[in-house]
Design a binder for these strands. Structure first.
Lengths: 245, 245
DNA sequence: CGTACTATTGATAGATATCAACGCTGGTGG
DNA sequence: CCACCAGCGTTGATATCTATCAATAGTACG
């Protein structure tokens, strides 16, 4: 099933029409190799991009040549829904693994947004992206590298489970330690040592490119992970839903 | 003039009706002392909050008691536009200085959003908040404390100028070094030394609670500040503006 | 097989935290 | 009016964390 549909149903039920429309608009699929920029800072893309398979990320390069990764885009995630309003990209988006990416014409997004249920679901997805960003800021600013990594693995467990890409305690995770370093704002050597510490505590293990979390509760407690910021709990929702600004 | 109106006109011109409506909806003003929480994590506020005067911030407390500040809210900024969709706050908002805060009923936000021009402007403001968050992530993750502070002072110069609260090279900035520390993710002692270094280079000086940037271009270059992420350049805009999702 | 990228480890340097002390300032009560 | 107090800023000495540099080993792939 369409990863986007699956993700949006995490917000609330969709009608058959909605699902059909989502399937219809996600047919223009492009195969993209790993480490390839999809959209660059300064671009004004015509189409909206959606990741269907593989991992991508948002990143910026600083004046002194450092790369900082600001978000992971996993299947079901939009890359640049916001460019219609902002006009110009203020960061770059690139693949981390081989990926399948859909190009959706701006016009088709308008069609999606004309359906109130889909409009709300898309807005929810955008706001959750922002909440994730806030949590990443806490991660980098207030947790040491080991805890930040542990927290990240918890978040990905929940996010990937939401699109059917994780089982109860593991998922494919094709990133290098270099990429984790640019995410956590530390060096790759330090990432290596922090991962070793996590392995040593039995909190996370790695088999090939698969992250295995044998005791999720323990990892949650260790990293201070509280999934509320992912807003996937239905009891939290269902209040007056104003049309999106 | 209403700070919100002023800010939104940075996106595009508003009609007289729009301005009148904004004035009308921002009359329920509350005086709030410094260091007072406006909304707490877990709350489901009925009203939307808007800062009219003073500084506030978004923050989270981590499991081990550290506070991390994730955003500054300055006059003209909304605190919680998103709660209508997300249902529950995933962070806390508190004042940093004495402030004047408007409470706007959810219902009135619906009225704002029914006007296409205002809806677009509010969505723009939301997306800029997200862009600021991305830049803060780079700040904390990829710049040392002195550069992060310098970058922050650049950003505030632009943001405060947009609402008429900064002159060409200075503005009131009532935060303590403790608060800067919780923003940059370092200790207050280290903030103190980093500020000293900036003063020593003649990049930033402080007079009472006022930040003075004698040579903005120099500070921009030093900190790698590029204002594009604030999306205030009109030439960037004016493309197909889909109704907001 | 090489070759290139990635992971791992050790030794050392540099950045930031921690602990502790002192001074300044503004408010407050005697 | 002055003494005192609390919060904030500043500085020094030392400890801890993280970066840097360098070398080796594992792995994937043409």
């Amino acid at each position: 099933m369409n990863r986007l549909t699956r993700k949006l149903e995490g917000f609330g039920p969709l009608g058959d029409d909605d699902r059909r429309l989502l399937d219809e608009l996600t047919t223009n699929v492009h195969e993209v190799p790993a480490r390839t920029d999809l959209i660059r800072e300064g671009d004004r893309p015509e189409d909206v991009h959606l990741v269907l398979e593989g991992f991508a990320c948002r990143y910026k390069l600083t004046e002194d040549g450092r790369r900082h990764i600001m978000a992971y885009l996993v299947p079901g995630d939009f890359c640049d829904l916001h460019v219609a309003i902002l006009g110009q990209m203020d960061h770059t988006i690139g693949t981390l693994s081989p990926a399948r990416v859909v190009h959706i014409p701006r016009r088709d997004i308008d069609r999606l947004v004309q359906r109130p249920t889909l409009a709300k679901a898309l807005w929810w997805a955008t706001l959750v992206d922002e909440a994730v960003l806030r949590e990443w800021l806490v991660n980098v600013g207030a947790r040491d590298a080991a805890k930040a990594l542990a927290h990240l693995f918890c978040e990905l467990l929940v996010r990937l489970r939401a699109v059917g890409l994780a089982d109860a305690n593991s998922y494919e995770f094709p990133l290098t330690q270099d990429e984790l370093a640019d995410t956590a704002g530390v060096t790759a050597v330090h990432i290596n040592r922090s991962l070793k510490a996590l392995r040593g505590e039995g909190l996370v293990t790695f088999h090939g490119k698969r992250v295995v979390i044998s005791d999720a509760e323990r990892l949650f407690a260790y990293s201070g992970f509280n999934p509320n910021y992912l807003h996937r709990d239905r009891r939290m929702r269902g209040r007056s839903l104003a049309p999106a600004p």
